[in-house]
Write a protein that binds this DNA or RNA. Structure first.
Lengths: 141, 141
DNA sequence: TCATATTCCTTTGACATCGAATGATTAGAT
DNA sequence: ATCTAATCATTCGATGTCAAAGGAATATGA
């Protein structure tokens, strides 16, 4: 008789779904969302030349990024303008409003991360990080 | 100087996204999808009296389940009819086509699970399962 | 009995996401 | 020079998801 464990992929999907949901709700209370937070985080880190790089860093496709940038631009969080030296590229600049939103959402993210880590030892978290990274790396093949 | 690890939630979301994507692609090659597979799996396990129970088991909300049941009924995978004793409830029955689809998708799912587990020891998989279950349970609070 | 509440499901409207097609701009080849 | 490729972003169409509102059927309470 085999153990017939729940498939690891199903556990992974469930844990990620419940966690994302809780995080998104927390961000929504400050007027944000997960993709908005990830875009702000990537922009504050800087070093992007193209939107495609930004999309990669956030983990979404180009059209999805365009969608969020539209919303964020309408909300006054950022400005888009074509780069003078290569007019195919759109330069993105955060406004003061955008930076303020970043700081508010960072507070939410830090609190959420602390909450997520509570109840686990550092050794367990290191192990979890290692296992998740290996899982993600496997898919790339 | 702190380690400044990547937040655990971000690693979780990335691993789940890449894994789900790969699994969904594999299912699509057989004409399926993740929600269709989960609905078929739940129906084959049986024991549902109401659609809301089915939605819970699949991990989606009622309207989303209705959406997929519509598609699956149109595709000839199942039949819906009201229960005679309580006409609020819709009884769902898989057709032969639906059962055939289940068996095909089960092959995909088993192959995918094996692929996901490769490269990990049984001890590591047990550890990962334990950590993911604890993470998911934490959100329920 | 019959008005109201509850249960179960569906419809509606909204948003996130992606692939494919389209525009706009630049680079490259002859 | 100009014609074709390649590059970067957007638009379009489709799917998955949810919350809120809307039916349909049953249960409840005077």
């Amino acid at each position: 008789m085999e153990p017939a464990h729940t498939p690891i992929g199903l556990l992974l999907a469930r844990a990620a779904k419940t966690a994302s949901r809780a995080f998104d709700d927390a961000l929504a209370a400050e007027g944000g969302s997960i993709p908005v937070w990830l875009v702000l985080l990537a922009l504050m880190r800087g070093g992007h030349r193209m939107q495609s790089e930004l999309a990669d860093e956030v983990g979404i496709q180009g059209p999805t990024l365009t969608h969020h940038l539209n919303g964020m631009e309408n909300a006054g969080l950022l400005l888009r303008q074509r780069a003078p030296d290569n007019r195919r590229i759109h330069r993105i600049e955060l406004t003061d409003t955008g930076r303020a939103m970043f700081h508010r959402l960072r507070g939410v993210a830090m609190a959420y991360d602390a909450r997520l880590r509570s109840g686990f030892t550092e050794a367990e978290l290191d192990m979890l990080r290692n296992l998740l990274e290996r899982l993600a790396a496997k898919q790339a093949s």
